[in-house]
Design a protein around this nucleic acid. Sequence first.
RNA 1: GCGGGCGUCGCCAAGUGGUUAAGGCAGCGGCUUGUGGCGCCGCUAUUCGGGGGUUCGAAUCCCCUCGCUCGCCCCA
Length: 428
Amino acid sequence: MSQLQSLRGMVDLLPEQTRRWQAVETVAREHFRRSGLAEIRTPLLEVTELFARGIGEGTDVVGKEMYTFLDRGERSCTLRPEGTASVVRAALQHGLLSQGSQKLWYAGPMFRYERPQAGRQRQFHQIGVECLGVSSARSDVEVIALAWDLLADLGVQGLELQLNSLGSREDRQRYRLELVSWLEQRVDRLDAESQKRLSTNPLRILDSKNTQTQALLGEAPTLLETLCEESAARFSEVQALLSQLAIPFTCNPRLVRGLDYYGHTAFEITSEHLGAQATVCGGGRYDELIQELGGPATPAIGWALGMERLLLVLEVAASADPSGAAARLTAGSSPTVYVVNRGAPAEAAALQLARALRAAGVAVELDGSSAAFGKQFKRADRSGAPWAVVVGEDEVNSGILRLKPLQREGEEQRLPLLDLTALLQRLG
RNA sequence: GCGGGCGUCGCCAAGUGGUUAAGGCAGCGGCUUGUGGCGCCGCUAUUCGGGGGUUCGAAUCCCCUCGCUCGCCCCA
């Protein structure tokens, strides 16, 4: 096809979809407001080094998925593949951390050069939360609860919260050695991909999808068993607090996040309705990132949820329960008044009237077709508007407009064309 | 980067070597030149993602290419 089209993995949001996104964003904003989070907006483009250092040179995201190029000043720039590094950079750059802990949220597009598939695009969108300067187990749970409650409020069904602790840096180092030596004695039972990872990134073997490897891992030592006393106590506290809030969770010792900066609490909220890309929301604690990016040692935790995946799950929920919260979110909106108008003087008067009604806060659809009244009424009906206002030649001449109820039975009323107050009263 | 599936009107879709390329939705016009929701009538693809080839003849077979899609990988 020679017709120009969007780049691969870059998706248009048509009006119907955009409406749903806005509904989700509105609910999210309200949750953030109640939780005392402030919005932050950072550039889409950053110096490449930010992500290389922040996310980790060895990660797939940095190694092969970034949109990186030289700008006209020969600087290496990268379209952000995630939000956390930018938020931390901005906080450091503007000295936010010296004003105490920061509770922030953001929303916007992220870019990763991957093969698109269900729930995965090259430009995708996240809503994320970052709490900088908080270290307690309680803060972990507060942040997780925020995500959980937001999703519940949206009416999403069938979610599972998976929880793990990656422990401290020392815990992970100790465990890595232990795991590697254990696996090395059983290399022959590992799939090829995992054998390669044994030397590059052994912890990632844990969430291999190879069934044989998974079976083997069932016998392997787990990270949780290797946690030092302090890390273990911390993890217990997180679980206890979650239970207190009656937020159900599953401990998953195989849950390993793909970005290097995570430690201690790590979690994912997954849906059974999403196919291979099941994670709707993922996050965890990153106590070492801020230092890594040149700031003071500052504990932090955050999460990000994938808008496209959330919308996918929301549509499932909406069709499963047509009267539920998800369905209400995805519903369209109709104008209050549809103005049927025809003939040059009438069309001018109708334009004036529509403008005045709009100024008074009424949603007005003004038919612009000059088509026969029958056609215009047909469209008026389809628009879902409860009222039609008719302005034609007769109405302009007499100065009396007609107001007709559409969705229900009722008499057509006559009102002075210039008496906006009377009209607004009838519209309720 | 590697595998599988698929590309016929804005959307859904029939057609699998010879048909005037069905049908539905949406759109437009009319029945109804000033009153909707229903109905009826008409119009809307010289062309089947693109390019080559086979054939008397191709949307239908072959090759290449582009795109979409699902999965691996990875992640939200």
